[in-house]
């Protein structure tokens, strides 16, 4: 109340000084300036896409798109630029990361949204915020020190004994812990806070009346969630997962540190891989002497950008519709 009175005094005091025409003029100028700045995000997306496209043009015109995207061999010195091992490496790591992240994230966010006491939420939120705040390179160090040895000493022997001989994608193919599984585990932890917070928000858009109506009929809480709440929010959950996946696709430093970086098409989760972002980070800026190399790497960035843009726009549109309902 006090604050409002202060604001009023302020406005009254101001009225006597600048004249109304000059205030209107300021308002008009500010509106234009703000408008121009607000166009910036939209322009920036276009500029980045166009700039990468222009810089990647030499390689796009020298080779056909199918040669680039599905070419198996990466030997820039010989003029062979096949992105296939890198694209598949990216997909494998992302798939493992998302696959590992989704079940615990879904369960944890349902718990936070539907069951948890306000006190539990008050504890969980800062924990998730901190998890999101930890820099990628620190995730990488953690992966290197904890996850790679864990994969090597625990998961690989376990898989060797139980799964590897029967299911090819679980066969242990190389003796270090570096590889897709280590990268996937690190990614799973990295994208968890995002997935959980988005799913939580989506659950919050379901009106409580629906829950009360169902609970009033004598269902248990889980029955209400399963039959009333979940069908309402399924598109939102999928959007959250896609958002997490797109974050995982572009993750660079943390993955690069644990994934092994061997340009070979992977066949098992214990294989090493060489995702696109790692390719760019490891080589860009140093290879100006090799013809087309620069264009090829920016082409890789363009492929990455286009996929992520599609994922992002779709999931954001779905989520915007959801959150608008509230």
């Amino acid at each position: 109340m006090n604050e409002i009175e202060l604001t009023q005094v302020k406005v009254e005091g101001r009225l006597s000084r600048p004249s109304t025409p000059s205030r209107t003029r300021t308002d008009r100028t500010a509106r234009r300036a703000f408008f121009v700045i607000t166009l910036l995000p939209i322009l920036l997306i276009l500029i980045i896409t166009i700039a990468l496209f222009v810089r990647a043009m030499p390689i796009l015109s020298a080779y056909s798109l199918t040669d680039l995207l599905f070419g198996e061999v990466w030997r820039p010195n010989n003029g062979q630029f096949g992105f296939r091992p890198f694209i598949l490496g990216t997909l494998w790591v992302t798939a493992v990361g998302v696959f590992l992240a989704v079940p615990p994230c879904l369960l944890a966010s349902i718990y936070l949204a539907e069951y948890a006491h306000a006190r539990t939420r008050a504890i969980a939120k800062p924990i998730l915020d901190l998890l999101a705040a930890i820099p990628p390179v620190v995730y990488g160090v953690w992966g290197l020190l904890a996850i790679v040895p864990f994969v090597d000493d625990v998961l690989a022997p376990l898989s060797e004994r139980w799964l590897g001989s029967t299911i090819p994608i679980f066969s242990v193919t190389q003796p270090t812990g570096f590889g897709i599984l280590a990268g996937g585990i690190v990614l799973a932890v990295m994208i968890s806070p995002l997935i959980i917070s988005v799913i939580f928000e989506v659950f919050a858009t379901v009106p409580n009346d629906l829950r009360y109506a169902s609970l009033g009929l004598g269902t248990t809480q889980w029955q209400t969630i399963r039959t009333v709440v979940l069908p309402q929010v399924t598109p939102g959950i999928i959007a959250a997962i896609v958002l997490g996946a797109s974050r995982a696709l572009g993750e660079t430093i943390a993955v690069l540190m644990v994934v092994g970086n061997v340009p070979k098409t992977p066949t098992s989760v214990f294989d090493t891989a060489y995702p696109l972002p790692a390719l760019i980070a490891n080589n860009y800026g140093e290879m100006m002497s090799i013809p087309l190399y620069d264009a090829a790497l920016l082409g890789a960035a363009l492929v990455l950008l286009v996929v992520i843009l599609i994922f992002n726009i779709l999931s954001t549109l779905v989520l915007q519709r959801f959150l608008r309902r509230k």
């Binding site: 995000p41 797109s246 572009g250 660079t252 860009y284 920016l298 960035a301 992520i308």
Partner: peptide, 21 residues
């Protein structure tokens, strides 16, 4: 909403792409 969409999309662009750009 369009501006917010653009911002969310920008948020999703990986930092390696910003670096390369």
């Amino acid at each position: 909403d369009y501006v917010r969409l653009a911002l969310d999309v920008l948020w999703g662009i990986p930092s390696i792409v910003y670096g390369a750009f």
